[in-house]
Design a protein around this nucleic acid. Sequence first.
DNA 1: GTCTATAAATGGATAGAC
DNA 2: GTCTATCCATTTATAGAC
Lengths: 196, 196
Amino acid sequence: MGRTVGRSAEDTRRLLLDAAGEVIRNRGVHASLDDVARLAGVSKGGLIYHFASKDELLLELARDLLQSFRSDIVSQLDPDDTMPGRLTRAYVRALFTPAEDEAAARKALALITQLMTIPAVAELARLDAEELRRELDADGLPTDVLVLVTAAADGVDSAPLWGASADGPEYRRLGDRLIELTRRPELWNGLPWGEG
Amino acid sequence: MGRTVGRSAEDTRRLLLDAAGEVIRNRGVHASLDDVARLAGVSKGGLIYHFASKDELLLELARDLLQSFRSDIVSQLDPDDTMPGRLTRAYVRALFTPAEDEAAARKALALITQLMTIPAVAELARLDAEELRRELDADGLPTDVLVLVTAAADGVDSAPLWGASADGPEYRRLGDRLIELTRRPELWNGLPWGEG
DNA sequence: GTCTATAAATGGATAGAC
DNA sequence: GTCTATCCATTTATAGAC
């Protein structure tokens, strides 16, 4: 093994991926490797040792983000919840949960959008979205309810992307209400399409 | 006046803005001025004559896109509709209207997201979003209904951003139903929060 | 395992011809 | 009003030292 500085190669990769996320969120995908390296506290040469090219760094970053979004959802699954729609509720909770720190999952989708300009990332995201959609489809809710609830959650989550802010109390309450809607079949008839 | 090629300066600007949109949609904000100029059929020098810098080009492009989104909404206003929520309905219709061609409005938001990495654009978008929100707030719907409906519309509109596609029949129907929801106050009590 | 130095390419912007 | 030529800064990536 070579000369290390008191941390493992894995730690350095993690450091670099986090730095890349932070830099790209703010400056876009065309942020330089130098910026990323500097923020991570390593040199550009050091970065290139861990990620052979910029595209590889960005692809790994995308993979990492998609995976962490997935585990966000899983961590929101309620063990005591056995009703249909439990994955959908976890999805809503994941999207509405404010990030612990600023750099974390909250802005992950804005970052993904930047990364989507790389074809390999776009393909990865498409496959991931398709699989998640299949799992949600199998979650036991009527399609109409599922579509409404996930669309509303997506909308709140994506608001910051075009300059809007969705952190007022009315948005915070919407999450609870969407979850309640998935839990109470008697309300589905009150929706515009439930009566025919 | 200088040497022209059979079109006005305005035409050339339009040509350049369209080309910039097309190129940036596909290659991201770091696409080169050369690429933009080439697609528009002018030289890089020609481009720089019309837009003094790259940032100016991008800012103008953002302004153009926000404006065209605004007129999309206005064009969806129903002159016969005098009920509260008419702007909200126009908003929903605008977001649910499928793009004429693939490259057009459907990807417009992906483009905006790219542009948002430029600070001047981010500020522009923020102001624009705030004003639209004020207008929607004054549209006569209860906050809870407005928030649900606009969030759902935003969600559908933004789905392509992360690889999902929202063009199935279930999504096409959601638009009609959201609009119906804004029109029928008697349904609002059927929503999870309408009963207390 | 990480650094410095540098090669090679590209991009933004200017100057001036036409 | 647009083009060519060119300058300069930036950036990715390589080579090799430590």
